[in-house]
Amino acid sequence: MHELGVVIEVVNTIEKIAIKQKLTKIDALVLQIGELSSMVPKYIEECYPAAVDGTILQDTKLKIEIIPGNAICKRCSKVFNIIENGKKCPNCGSDDLGLLSGKEFMIKEIIAY
C-alpha cells in the first residue's frame, strides 16, 4: 500500500504551507483523486489518521473528490467516461482515444480558520 507514503508527503507539504502562511488551525483538507490514478480513495481515508497523528492536521477532516476518467474519441470527437464505456467510444466503437482526465492526484484546498 503506497498510499501511506503519499499521504505522509501530502502532510509534509501542507505543514510547509501552514508555516509559510502562518496558519495555526486547519479544519479540512480536500484532495482530488482521478478514478484512473494509482491511488485508492478508501486506502487514503484509512491511512489518513495515522499520517496526521501528532501534526497540525491531526484534527482535520479529509474530503476526497473523485475526478472522472474521461477521454475523447480521436475518430468522432465524442467525450466519454472510459470506465463506464469499457475503453471504447460509445458513439462509434473506436478505441483510438485521448485521455482528458482521471489520472490526477492533487491537493485542491486547505480550509483554515
Rank of each mutant, 00 (worst) to 15 (best):
P68N: 10
C47Q: 00
E35L: 07
S94E: 01
I67T: 01
L57I: 01
V6Y: 08
L36A: 13
L99T: 06
E104C: 05
I107R: 04
I64A: 07
L99E: 06
F105L: 12
K61F: 15
I110Q: 00
E15P: 01
V11M: 05
E15Y: 03
L36T: 05
D27M: 09
K103T: 11
I107N: 09
K103N: 14
A50S: 10
H2K: 07
A51E: 02
A18K: 07
K16A: 15
V11D: 01
V11H: 02
G93W: 12
V79R: 14
K78L: 10
Y48R: 04
P49C: 08
G54D: 09
I83N: 10
E65Q: 14
G98P: 00
S101C: 09
I111P: 00
G5L: 04
G69P: 03
Q58Y: 14
N85T: 02
I14N: 04
K63A: 11
R75Q: 14
K63N: 13
K87Y: 15
I44E: 00
N12I: 10
I66C: 03
F105I: 08
F80C: 05
K88T: 14
A51S: 11
M1N: 11
V7W: 07
A50G: 03
G86K: 04
Q21E: 15
P68Y: 02
I8V: 12
P90R: 11
L36W: 09
I83G: 02
M39K: 09
N91P: 06
C92L: 11
G93V: 06
G93D: 10
I67G: 01
D96R: 09
I110H: 05
D53Y: 12
E65M: 12
K74Q: 11
N12R: 15
K87G: 13
A112D: 00
V79H: 11
C92N: 06
K20L: 13
M39T: 10
E3H: 05
N70I: 10
L100G: 02
K16P: 01
I44N: 08
C92H: 07
E3T: 05
F80T: 00
S94F: 03
L100H: 01
P41H: 09
N12H: 07
F80Q: 01
I67K: 00
V10K: 08
Y48F: 15
Y113W: 13
K103W: 07
M39W: 03
G93N: 09
K61T: 15
G54W: 10
P68V: 08
N81Y: 13
E46A: 15
A18W: 02
E65R: 12
A51G: 06
V6D: 01
K63E: 15
N81S: 13
E65A: 14
K42Q: 12
I44D: 04
S101G: 07
I8G: 06
